[in-house]
């Protein structure tokens, strides 16, 4: 009996490890939270997500909400806004990015300029799914790790429709821009967009880039 259980565990081990592969080790930013003007630290694992999912309705905005979360197994969001620049270490960010690099994730998008860095990585195994989003600015740090299948289009449609009150200065949330209007300008020259190797660059369809 014990042997059967052991063999079953051995058989399940790869499945379990694959399911957890998209879960990244995010640094403990508790010290950073103390320095930040505003911070958001959300860690929802599979069990908590399941519990929350059970109470999302199936109509209207809730239906989209339910659709967006149906295949998620975990969501981890860390956002810090600071009053002064350079309050966090890029080493912390690099430690997360190196995990996805070593695990063979695909870099979907990368934007870098003098001050800003935005990267989006997707877990290579499409059956499991997973996403890492990193955005660093001198006074803001955003790290998002989603475990599970991610539908970027559904996700991007959710902004402003989840009943989250729009409080000015809420870290990580930018006011939505009306369609057709480019987003608010940022500091510095236009950044160089570098599509990741193996990912098709944006097709020439001005003025709008293709949806994520």
């Amino acid at each position: 009996m014990k042997r059967t259980g052991f063999l079953l565990m051995l058989a399940l081990l790869p499945v379990l490890s694959v399911a957890q592969a998209a879960r990244l080790r995010l640094p403990d930013f508790s010290e950073l939270a103390g320095k930040a003007r505003e911070s958001v630290d959300i860690s929802l694992d599979g069990d908590t997500l399941k519990m929350a999912r059970g109470f999302i309705g199936g109509r209207g905005n809730d239906a989209e909400f339910a659709d967006a979360v149906k295949d998620l197994q975990g969501i981890y969001v860390k956002v810090f806004s600071f009053d002064k620049p350079n309050m966090y270490s890029m080493r912390d960010v690099d430690s997360v990015v190196s995990q996805v690099e070593n695990q063979g994730w695909k870099k979907l998008m990368s934007i870098r300029d003098k001050t800003d860095r935005v990267e989006m990585w997707m877990h290579a195994d499409n059956n499991d799914g997973g996403m890492l989003f990193v955005a660093t600015e001198p006074e803001e740090l955003v790290l998002i790790n989603i475990v599970g299948k991610v539908d970027l289009q559904t996700l991007s449609r959710l902004q402003g429709r989840l009943g989250v009150p729009m409080i000015p200065g809420m870290p990580g949330i930018r006011p939505p821009t009306p369609p057709g209007v480019p987003g608010p300008g940022r500091r510095g020259p236009p950044p160089a967009v570098a599509p990741a190797p193996g990912v098709a660059p944006a097709p020439p369809a001005p003025p709008a880039a293709p949806p994520l």
Partner: peptide, 25 residues
């Protein structure tokens, strides 16, 4: 928390999209 996490994610994705649009233009 889930709603806030998705709101932030969605907002960041839209910000990235806007940025790409701007760069394209």
């Amino acid at each position: 928390q889930l709603a806030l996490a998705l709101e932030i994610t969605s907002s960041q994705l839209n910000g990235l999209q806007q940025r790409l649009n701007r760069n394209t233009m």
